[in-house]
């Protein structure tokens, strides 16, 4: 399994995924410069918001667009034939693929976070101490790491969704389904109380069922709290991580179950 994971990581490096980190660094540095020219007092808040959003967005791109190809590309190009003829079980193959992409994500997001902190340090160093008093939280706020950890957890969940779809659907369909679930997962709180929108009991029950079946991604987004210096309770972080672990496990079990039964024509 570890060998498959290493291979996925190597492939992502060879396919120039790290270029996204360079793009991120350029974007965030350019943005910080512009923001510092345009605003006073609000610059740190905007910078943090932009930085965290960019980390989440670049990570999402990596998770979805590599994730959807993890299995389907191997099957389509038939590289899976030689691999599965080796002493490697299908569950090991799936788990290796998953953890390989998670490793890619973690390395990418770690580097992006370091770049982000470097920009914050620079802004902190070059800002007038008087202006800093208007900041809701210090520049190098360690709570930013909590936000990044939850972004990583969300992306691990998105990767598991992409991988699950990738075991039976084409890359295009997998991408559409994964992005659909991601959007629904961020806005599915409305489904929970659907009766307030449409007071038809069967529809409300269906909406409630969909709410529980879809991943609830809203708790992973604590960017607003962190940017405004509001504390994120440890219990929230722990529960959200536990929720991610359970949901990821279910998706991986599903992916393995589908992949185990598949015929490779």
């Amino acid at each position: 399994m570890a060998l498959v994971a290493q291979a996925v990581f190597k492939e992502s490096v060879r396919d120039r995924v790290p270029y996204s980190m360079v793009a991120f660094a350029v974007l965030i540095i350019a943005a910080s410069y512009l923001i510092s020219q345009l605003t006073a007092g609000q610059d740190m808040k905007i910078l943090k918001d932009l930085g965290l959003a960019a980390i989440a967005a670049f990570g999402l791109l990596i998770a979805v667009f590599i994730g959807i190809n993890l299995v389907s590309k191997e099957v389509e190009r038939r590289s899976v034939f030689a691999v599965l003829a080796k002493p490697l079980s299908r569950p090991q193959f799936i788990l290796g693929k998953y953890f390989g992409l998670v490793l890619t994500l973690v390395v990418n997001l770690s580097v992006m976070t370091l770049a982000f902190y470097a920009v914050l340090l620079y802004v902190d160093f070059t800002t007038d101490p008087l202006l800093k008093t208007a900041w809701p939280a210090p520049a190098l706020d360690p709570r930013l790491v909590v936000a990044v950890i939850l972004i990583v957890a969300e992306l691990m969940l998105v990767t598991a969704i992409a991988l699950f779809f990738s075991t039976f659907a084409s890359p295009l369909l997998s991408a559409l389904l994964t992005l659909g679930v991601w959007v629904a997962g961020h806005f599915n709180a409305d489904l929970r109380n659907f009766e307030t929108v449409l007071d038809v009991r069967p529809v409300a029950l269906l909406a409630r069922a969909v709410y529980y079946a879809l991943p609830n991604l809203a708790p992973f987004n604590v960017r607003a709290e962190v940017v405004h210096g509001v504390a994120v309770p440890v219990s929230h972080t722990a529960l959200t991580l536990a929720y991610a672990a359970v949901y990821i496990s279910i998706l991986l079990f599903g992916a393995i179950a589908v992949f185990r039964r598949r015929d490779f024509k």
Partner: peptide, 9 residues
Amino acid sequence: FLPENPYFY
């Protein structure tokens, strides 16, 4: 095992 028209990474 050598598959027909093999493809590798």
